[in-house]
Design a protein around this nucleic acid. Sequence first.
DNA 1: CGGGGTTCCTGGCCGC
DNA 2: TGCGGCCAGGAACCCC
Length: 285
Amino acid sequence: MLLLTGHYVGLVPELPEVETVRRQLVPLIVGTRITGCDAHPSSRFRDATLATGYRIHRINRRGKYLLIGLLPVPPADPIPTRELVIHLGMTGGVSVCSSPPNDPYLRACWSLEDGRYMAFRDIRRFGRLAVVATGEYSLLPTLHRLGPEPSDPSLDGAAFHSALSSSRRHVKTKLLSQRPIAGVGNIYADEALWRAGINPAARRVGRERATMLLDSIREVLGEALANNGTTLRDYRTPGGESGRNQDRLDCYGRGGQPCRSCGETLATRQLDQRTTTWCRSCQAR
DNA sequence: CGGGGTTCCTGGCCGC
DNA sequence: TGCGGCCAGGAACCCC
């Protein structure tokens, strides 16, 4: 029987979805030792085998990256801890199951000491994983230079405004870069910009509006997390439920439909190679 | 070092 | 019904 945690198909996992997966995984695998691994030969996945022999002692998250803490067995001194870093990409998902999965999209499968398996499946292979020395992220440039977590109390309006002011790129593109703040992808960028009334193509955002945008990002991500994430197609939690946030989206995916604030038809266009939906009236330049 | 463009993938969907 | 073509999209990567 397959127990799925974060089995995403056609969904872009952003911070709330990755955090949902993290919370589901903690009680299932923390404390367990990895005894073996089969991995897809692609450089995106073959590092999975390097986790063999380690014990999983914690699961953290930074932005959209899952950070699975590994302790050597037996413990060494000093302890050379490592981390299994997983990015779900667009269609990646992690599952824990009691028999070997038979799945054409399986990219890595770790056997656990208690006879279970942890599997990473990823239809489109946009995900990737790596095993690194703890905190050593130089081979993962986006993680290496990742902005603060939305929950970071030191991230205030002034700091966010400063981070947004360091270049003249479109504000939405800066959000997607993961530099001003970690974990925002296309869905929640559109949602937060709509809520804050900021045009996605703005290149300068004043101090006051930057504070509003930061508040909107925190609200949007928090509400999505409370709803177990956004399901656009086939995401299922271990109990087989969908996330519930897709019904709450006000902007993303609603191009051509009326703005829920003013009634104007929402517009859609490509902005820096990303589909972008916004309200020409509420989010005027 | 920043920014712009390209690439990786495949199921789902649309139109003929 | 079948099929070609297009779309979604995070982040690495390459080049200027």
